[in-house]
Amino acid sequence: MYFLTKELYFPPVDEASYEGILAVGGDLSVERLLLAYKNGIFPWFSDDEPILWWSPSERMVVVPKLYKVSKSTRNLINQNKFKVTFNQNFAEVIRNCQQIERIGQEGTWITEDIIASYTILHEMGIAKSVEVWQNDELVGGLYGLDLGHVFCGESMFSKVSNASKIAFVWLVNYLKENNYLLLDCQVHNDHLEKLGAFEISRDTFMRVLKSTV
Rank of each mutant, 00 (worst) to 15 (best):
L182G: 04
I77W: 05
G196F: 06
D146K: 01
K83I: 13
L8Y: 04
I94F: 07
E58N: 04
F168M: 07
W109Y: 08
P56V: 14
V30M: 08
N89F: 00
W170R: 11
S129I: 01
M60N: 07
S129R: 02
G125D: 05
D14L: 14
T212K: 02
G25D: 13
Y2C: 05
Y2R: 02
P64G: 10
I94T: 01
A16I: 07
E106P: 08
A127N: 00
G107R: 11
K6L: 07
L175V: 11
M124W: 09
G125N: 13
L145T: 09
L4E: 00
W54G: 01
W133V: 07
G148K: 05
N75W: 14
T212I: 15
I115Y: 06
N173S: 11
E199R: 13
V208W: 05
Q79L: 02
I166E: 02
S57A: 12
E31P: 06
R95F: 12
T108K: 15
L195D: 03
G153P: 07
D190M: 08
R32W: 12
L34V: 10
E106K: 11
A163D: 01
V61C: 03
H191D: 03
N75D: 12
S70C: 03
A116Q: 14
Y18Q: 15
S158Q: 04
I200M: 03
G140A: 08
I114F: 06
F168Q: 03
K81M: 06
D14A: 09
S46H: 15
W44M: 06
D184E: 04
G40N: 05
V172P: 10
N162Q: 09
Q99C: 02
K81V: 01
D203E: 12
Q99I: 07
I110D: 00
E112R: 03
